[in-house]
């Protein structure tokens, strides 16, 4: 069987197959939230805000031994639909794993994710923004799980992988894999396939490519956070 390749030729913006769009992050763009972050991959941008840990608004949300996580995803235009609800559920499962919720019993942590411009890999962007906002709010987490998307295009011979696809590239490709990786433990935190099914080897190379770029993304995040956290890191 032909191995999946990361050919450069056909990408419209001239990127290599394994090249991310330039990521950008901005901590605390919103001043009234307990923590907030903006994350972008090229033209896809998402803002996330975290409120809490605080007292839950209703009693039945309160869990005696841990915090309740509430995720709200708002689309760029219009009212939330099934797609946003699915994203909410997915983020909730992922963040429940990442956040050390037993540290904050009987509280609620709300994460509000506002999609502000959608040009492909939106789910990955949203997950990254949410993770950064939680980091900014100082919520205890067991891992930094960052997220990327990989699109797979079936050509005659071997399938072609495109990392971090734009909306136009997503439309051209048959399948899309969105994954989150905890790079320090080298663990897959979540993986959602959509579109056509993939054979095992192609899926494995998607995961490998995704894991590599999550590492790169984490290094980038560390670099951008260094400035902000300097005051904390400096020995007194």
């Amino acid at each position: 069987m032909a191995t999946p390749s990361m050919a450069a030729n056909a990408r419209r913006d001239g990127r290599q197959g394994n090249q991310l769009r330039p990521p950008a992050m901005d901590l605390r763009p919103l001043l009234r939230a307990d923590g907030s972050a903006r994350f972008r991959f090229g033209d896809s941008a998402v803002v996330a805000a975290v409120f809490g840990p605080r007292e839950p608004r209703s009693r039945h949300r309160e869990l005696f031994d841990r915090a309740t996580l509430e995720i709200v995803v708002r689309p760029a235009v219009g009212i939330p639909g099934p797609k946003e609800r699915q994203m909410e559920a997915h983020l909730a499962r992922q963040l429940e794993h990442v956040v050390l919720s037993t540290e904050y019993p009987r509280t609620q942590i709300s994460v509000v994710v506002q999609l502000s411009s959608c040009d492909g890999s939106v789910a990955a962007c949203a997950a990254n923004a949410a993770a950064l906002a939680l980091l900014d709010a100082g919520v205890a987490m067991r891992a930094t799980a960052l997220s990327v998307a990989v699109a797979v295009k079936q050509t005659g011979g071997s399938p072609v992988l495109w990392l971090d696809p734009t909306a136009a590239e997503e439309a051209q490709c048959e399948s899309l894999v969105t994954l989150a990786v905890d790079s320090s433990r080298n663990q897959l935190v979540s993986n959602i396939s959509s579109g056509a099914a993939l054979d095992a080897a192609t899926w494995a190379s998607c995961i490998e490519a995704g894991a590599k770029s999550c590492k790169v993304l984490e290094a980038f995040m560390r670099m951008s956070l260094q400035k902000r956290l300097e005051t904390f890191l400096k020995p007194s």
């Binding site: 499962r93 433990r185 897959l188 935190v189 054979d199």
Partner: peptide, 15 residues
Amino acid sequence: EGRWLVFHQGGGADA
């Protein structure tokens, strides 16, 4: 048809 779709949610796992 011999190909896979993977839906993995919420937890660290070894791929």
